[in-house]
Design a protein around this nucleic acid. Structure first.
Length: 413
DNA sequence: CCTCCACAGGAAGCGCAGGAGT
DNA sequence: ACTCCTGCGCTTCCTGTGGAGG
């Protein structure tokens, strides 16, 4: 942020709290939160309700490493927000506290997505010269043998393991390392939310990776209620959160995913909304408002990570949705569906305004597919009646919200 | 019935950034 | 650090489909 913008920024803040007369007033105003970090998705609580079984099973499976023996490899399945990562983190805390000749490392494979990178990251803590790159795979392999060869048990947790491109090779490398090692060992704990990713593995690495398999089920509405209660108690001051608000948040979440992370986000957001509006309690109304806000947040996050051309196409769709489809009116319909042709025209117009070269229709169609996969638009093939063969397109959310989100981002007038 | 329009989507090939391997 | 190569994003070309209209 440059200086000018920084001053604007201060000005905006000043306007925002314009109603506050003094620091005394601001500071004397009590927050409804006791400790909002408890509600953050990264928080690892001492108690993990409804995951006691999985937790003790995991500890049992990993425990040989603390006794100098190699544990079996483990694969953990479960949709997002079912407590996979948080369980592992808890196990890791207790594991490290034992201070034995054993190491447990956590990696997210979205970032460390190849055998090479994983080895490099794991060994970095032991081999200082790896800060510089330029070492071959054989070198890394030798170092792995050196590090584990001292009798060290190494447990590598690979979150989102399905993102590893050469998983077969990785598993094979680890298997070979374990064969060669006289003391010490290397164990993989893989976490995945895609149930069918093992189909892509070859038989040999599959059987060695799947020595143990654990499944984390989604939380039910009742379970979510208890979890939310527990967290709300620690996160909010007494008597702030209404019981029915928690039930509502649990019900909304259980209804579409059972994702505890989403439920926590709802409650946190509801609290923030209540606080901003100066309310003393969090009720159903705040949870409802939070749901809309969280949904828009998710959409906005998706849009922000979209490549520019996808954004332009989506912008074109939002723009046309606001005015209604000319083509479909010509066909005597209500104008709520758009045609691929008119969207492409609009897309080209916007590209011209932005002085960008528009992509060809062939590729533009792939953009439409991507947008549909992301749930931002829905498409219906039209087989009868309308202009031969075409696709009818409808935007997923309120076009005004989408239009505004992208307009700010693309700096369109 | 034939041709044209508007579109779907496969195949091949191209240039380039960045990852793999040394 | 340096080179080679692969994969990605994209264009070009092509075939196929079904209604509209002469």
């Amino acid at each position: 942020m440059d200086e000018l913008h920084f001053h604007y920024y201060l000005l905006i803040i000043a306007c925002d709290i314009g109603s506050m007369a003094s620091f005394d007033e601001i500071l004397s105003k009590e927050s409804i939160f006791k400790d909002s970090s408890v509600l953050s998705p990264h928080f690892v609580p001492r108690e993990l309700p409804f995951r006691e079984d999985q937790l003790s099973e995991l500890m049992l499976l990993v425990s040989p490493a603390l006794a100098g023996k190699k544990p079996k490899n483990i694969i953990i399945y479960g949709k997002s927000g079912t407590g996979k990562t948080v369980c592992i983190k808890r196990v890791m805390e207790d594991f490290d506290a034992q201070k034995k000749n054993a190491t447990i490392v956590y990696l997210n494979c979205r970032i460390y997505s190849s055998r090479y990178r994983i080895l490099q990251k794991v060994l970095k803590g032991f081999v200082p010269e790896l800060e510089r790159s330029g070492f071959g795979l054989p070198f890394l392999y030798e170092k792995l043998l050196d590090v584990a060869g001292t009798g060290r048990q190494m447990v590598i947790v690979l979150d989102e393991i399905d993102m590893v491109k050469d998983l077969d090779d990785l598993v094979y490398t680890m298997t070979r390392a374990n064969d060669e090692l006289k003391a010490g060992g290397v164990t993989i704990i893989g976490i995945s939310n895609r149930l069918h990713f093992k189909d892509a593995l070859d038989t040999r690495s599959r059987s060695s990776l799947y020595e143990n398999e654990m499944v984390f089920p989604g939380y039910t509405s009742e379970q979510l209620q208890k979890i939310l209660f527990q967290r709300a108690e620690a996160g909010f001051r007494k008597g702030i959160v209404d019981g029915s608000a928690i039930n509502l948040a649990a019900a909304i979440t259980a209804n579409d995913s059972g994702d505890a992370r989403y439920a926590l986000k709802l409650i946190l957001k509801a609290g923030e909304i209540a606080e901003k509006e100066g309310k003393k309690e969090v009720t159903d109304a705040e949870v409802e408002a939070a749901r809309r806000a969280v949904e828009l947040d998710l959409v906005s996050e998706t849009i922000n990570t979209l490549p520019e051309n996808h954004q332009i196409v989506l912008y074109a769709i939002a723009k046309l949705s606001m005015s209604g489809s000319k083509y479909s009116r010509l066909e005597g319909m209500d104008g709520s569906f758009l045609f691929t042709g008119e969207i492409h025209e609009e897309y080209e117009n916007i590209c011209r305004r932005l002085r960008k070269k528009p992509r060809t229709p062939r590729w533009y169609k792939e953009y439409l597919n991507d947008l549909e996969t992301l749930g931002l638009i829905t498409t219906t093939p039209s087989s009868k009646g309308i202009r031969g063969h075409t696709t009818l397109i409808k935007i997923g959310q309120n076009p005004r919200d989408i239009e505004k989100l992208i307009r700010d981002k693309l700096a369109l007038g």
